[in-house]
Each structure stands twice: as C-alpha cells, then as structure tokens.
C-alpha cells in the first residue's frame, strides 16, 4: 500500500472504481437517451423508471421464478424493451409532430405512473438483490482490492456501449438509422419502414436502460426511487456531452463518473453536486457541450 496526496491508495483506487461503476451507468443511460433522442426527438424522462423496472424485473425473476442473475440479464431487457415498444405505440407516436417539450412532459407523466406503482407494491425502502455465486469474491491487485462483480459491470457496460456505437456507426442498419435521423421523409421514400425503425429504436434504448438496471441491482438496492434520482444526473451528463455523438455520450458518462469518484476522496461534501458544477462550468465555457453541435 502506498499513498497519493496523503490518501491511501486503496481508498483512492476504491473510489475510482466506484466512479467507474457509476460512470458505466451514466454512459449506458445517456447512450440510450441519445439514441432515442436521435430517432424520436424526445427526451425520454421515463428512462430512469425503465432502468428501475429492469432492476425490479430481475428481483421478481429471482424471488418468484427462481431465475438468477444471468437469465435476468437477458430476460429483463427484453421484457422492459417490449414494454417500451408498447409505450411507443400507445402514447409516444401521437406527439412526434408536436413541440419537443410535450415529449418531455408525456414521458415525465409516464415516469410518475411507473414510479408510483412501484412505490405501492415495493415500498420506498430498498430490497436487496443477492449476487450470483460466480461473481462473488475478488482479487487483490497489490494497490487495491478488485471485487469480481464490479470488474464485470465495467467490462460489460464498455462492451455494450461500444457494441452500440459499432452498430450505429459501422453497420448498414446503423446507416439507415442515421439517415432516418437526418431526413425521415427521404428514407421512407427509399422504401424503408421508418415508423417501425422508430419503434424498435425506442425499444432498444429502453432495453439498454433495463440492462443497466439489472447490473445495478446487486450494487444498489432495488427501490422504486432508484431511477428518478439517477436520471437527473444523467440529464446533466447529457447536457455536458451533448446528444449529437454516441462516443461523446460514452466518454462523458465514464469521465464524469470518475470525476465524481475522485471528488468523494478529496472533498466528499461536494460529491453529490460535482457533476452539476461541471455542467455549469461547461455551459460557461462551451455552451454547446463538449461534443455537441450548436442546437
């Protein structure tokens, strides 16, 4: 063990690790928001609630269906993603022609409904989710202790983030998506079913949130409020990174998680607010956001 700026290395790297974990969730969620915003022109306020639904689904699967973490990691995103598709078909598709702000209000209302139902059936206290045996334990790296589960979360979210980036930026499907974002009418004229693409994009973005929720379940407790608190921070991340670029969302998500972790070491009182302060500074220096185009 050694010290950095008078802080023991285990504490420093421990917080850095927590920062990276938080950063993975920020990255996954802001990525989902960016993907949805690109296609639907809607800021999905329900995103936090859908993240919570992912965690809740995993909890229900474990306790009522006897299905553990690994099946939940596949099933929960599919279930919640399908619910997202339902939401898009029933509610969201009526408001694409309206001002963007209506999308925010509608999804805010949906978030309240989901969170309210959650509070009624789960209570406001958190429910514990037990870790799978295969991911318990950890290894000592000399300068810090690395729990296996945390390493897995960081690796998995990096993989999913870059997978999403690859699909959107490097495949034919992604090219259709990007084209439809730029000019939906023209893409439709080429014979591509844009409304279906919009529906599936929303489902995919929501599934990403649910995936993050399942991964969060063993770390934080499963509670109905877990999403609404997180989503506001993610909004700040999105303002900082701008929603124009997928890579920007990923980088700013992880970066801000790390900054938050470091703040917890050096000035713990500010760790709740540091991301908002960074947002304020970015707005002063680069109003369009770090990776954003002027909107």
């Amino acid at each position: 063990m050694f010290e950095v700026f008078g802080i023991p290395s285990t504490a420093l790297f421990g917080q850095l690790l927590i920062g990276l974990i938080n950063g993975s969730f920020y990255a996954l969620l802001s990525l989902g928001l960016a993907v949805i915003f690109g296609m639907l022109n809607i800021i999905n306020f329900t995103h936090g609630a859908q993240y919570m639904l992912g965690a809740v689904t995993a909890y229900l699967l474990l306790n009522y269906a006897g299905l553990g973490y690994w099946p939940a990691l596949v099933i929960a995103p599919i279930v919640v993603g399908l619910l997202g598709i339902l939401i898009e078909r029933v509610f969201l598709r009526w408001i694409y022609r309206l001002d963007h702000l209506y999308g925010l209000l509608l999804t805010f209302g949906l978030a309240l409904i989901i969170e309210g139902i959650g509070r009624n059936y789960l209570g406001t206290a958190g429910l514990p989710y037990t870790l799978p045996d295969s991911l318990r334990g950890g290894r000592n790296l000399g300068f810090m202790f690395l729990p296996n589960y945390r390493a897995w979360v960081i690796a998995a979210s990096l993989l999913v983030c870059f997978g999403t980036w690859f699909i959107i930026e490097r495949t034919r499907l992604g090219a259709y998506l990007r084209a439809a974002t730029e000019n939906p009418a023209l893409v439709r004229a080429f014979g591509i079913n844009v409304p279906r693409m919009i529906t599936l994009t929303y489902g995919f973005g929501v599934a990403l949130a649910a995936f993050a929720g399942v991964m969060a379940a063993p770390i934080y407790n499963v509670s109905p409020n877990m999403g609404s608190e997180l989503i506001i921070v993610v909004f700040a991340v999105v303002v900082i990174g701008g929603m124009g670029s997928i890579l920007g969302a990923i980088v700013s998500g992880f970066g801000l998680g790390v900054i938050e972790g470091l703040t917890k070491v050096f000035y713990p009182e500010a760790s709740n607010t540091v991301i908002f302060v960074v947002m304020a500074i970015v707005l002063l220096v680069r109003p369009a956001g770090l990776f954003g185009r002027r909107t």
């Binding site: 700040a236 303002v239 302060v277």
Partner: peptide, 28 residues
C-alpha cells in the same frame, strides 16, 4: 444566466439539473 445559453429541451434539462444541485445543498 446559465440556462439561457441553450435552447429547447436542453433548457429544461439544465434548469432541472441546477435545481437538483441546490436540492443537495439544502440537504447538506
């Protein structure tokens, strides 16, 4: 002063984020 630097949807998110920051100050 901060929020009017961005328009539309970003304006809403910035005002929400700043309010949340001041909420944490109130908690502490």
């Amino acid at each position: 002063f901060l929020a009017i630097r961005r328009q539309g949807i970003y304006f809403a998110m910035i005002t929400l984020a700043l309010a949340q920051m001041m909420y944490f100050f109130a908690v502490q």
